[in-house]
Design a protein around this nucleic acid. Structure first.
Length: 355
DNA sequence: AATACGTGGTG
DNA sequence: TCACCAAGTAT
């Protein structure tokens, strides 16, 4: 490693020592590494998700399940409900599968990047991040922040994602042997607070002197990105079925299949819009359905226009299939993903139960 | 390699 | 308002 490369990491680590964000899952620079369970849990939650959104969920999970063995012993539905609203629900399914693998090995995470990579939900980024942050390994950690910082530092003109191999090479070049975990977190703090997507704060950047994009005069131009595809709109229908059981109002909830859209989550019954390009699915059953309005929701790869139909008659449809009567009083504990939480609010407003 | 997979914050 | 986007992974 030559002197100039050493300087990049050293400058960044000096800046990190003075400016590191304080986060619930993070140990301050220069202090012992945090519990690998907390590092892993936070990294999975942070996949494609903002720090602000994760904080509340991290607090809830660590309160409910203080160790990986506690999480491994939890029921699937408890964990899925606790994850509700955070999105990308395959993460929660993999989280539980991973916790159970680790618990089966005695409750200790493997300490090498290669072994971590074999666990469910740990891809190249997360395996490297946990190895570096929790176990002090020298791993090359590349996330979207690092892609942006490195693209600018070296003025990489190739568009993402084609530039990923080159970005990884350059990140490897500047990653130090010691404090690789702090280095990775420093790169992410820099990308999050200084080297931002729009209007980077180069005057505050510890690496501005060695930044090729800064020298070129328009750092925000990088990284170049491939154009993204337009989102189609689908239409669908969901059903709100109420019944009064033992003197309390209940709603019929189902559990979605274990894969695909909102997989494994509690939900309102619907017409199968998730599996259709165009919506227009089947009615759930015969009955006096009352239209209650519509919910617009944008997913990762399509927008949904969901029409809500209510059946609040004294006798519910007979052929309801698999599901459960859920007390309205505890609806917020059902763990409905955001789409169906919106639909539930609409139904309650329509039936006058709530605002 | 390309696509599926959520959500809320932000400018 | 709305397009962009975030500590990516699985297939």
């Amino acid at each position: 490693m030559d002197a100039s490369r050493e300087t990049t990491a050293e400058r960044l680590l000096d800046w990190y020592d003075a400016h590191a964000r304080t986060l619930p899952w993070r140990a301050p620079p220069g202090t012992p590494a945090p519990d690998p369970y907390r590092v892993w849990l936070s990294e999975v939650m942070l996949q494609q998700t903002t720090v602000a959104a994760v904080k509340e969920y991290f607090a809830k999970f660590t309160r409910l399940w203080p160790s990986v063995s506690d999480l491994a012993a939890a029921r699937d539905e408890e964990v899925m409900a606790a994850w509700a609203g955070l999105g990308y629900y395959a993460r929660a399914r993999n989280l539980l599968a991973c916790a159970r693998e680790v618990a089966a090995r005695g409750g200790a995470f493997p300490e090498t990047e290669v072994e971590l990579r074999t666990l469910p939900g740990l891809g190249p980024y997360t395996a490297a991040a946990v190895a570096a942050i929790a176990f002090g390994a020298r791993a090359v950690v590349v996330d979207a922040n690092v892609e942006r910082v490195v693209s600018r530092l070296f003025a990489i003109e190739t568009a993402l994602p084609a530039s990923r191999p080159e970005i990884r090479e350059r990140t490897d070049d500047i990653t130090p042997q010691a404090r690789a975990g702090d280095f990775a977190q420093a790169m992410m703090d820099l990308g999050s607070g200084i080297c931002t997507v729009r209007e980077p704060k180069c005057l505050l950047c510890p690496l501005s002197e060695m930044c090729a994009a800064r020298a070129s005069g328009d750092p925000a131009r990088l990284p170049v990105k491939a154009p993204k595809k337009a989102k189609p709109t689908r239409t669908g229908r969901a059903f709100w079925i109420e019944a009064r059981i033992a003197g309390e109002d209940h709603v019929w909830l189902v559990r979605r299949a274990g894969k695909g859209m909102l997989g494994g989550m509690r939900a309102l019954p619907d017409d199968g819009w998730a599996a259709r390009q165009d919506g227009h699915g089947e009615d759930l059953a015969e009955g006096p359905w009352e239209p209650a309005g519509r919910v617009s929701h944008v997913f990762s790869h399509f927008a949904l226009d969901l029409r809500l139909a209510i059946h609040a008659g004294a006798s519910p449809p007979e052929d309801l299939g698999e599901g459960e009567w859920w007390p309205l009083e505890k609806l917020d504990e059902a763990g409905l993903p955001t789409l169906f939480a919106k639909a539930a609010r609409l139904a309650l407003a329509h039936t006058g139960e709530d605002a």
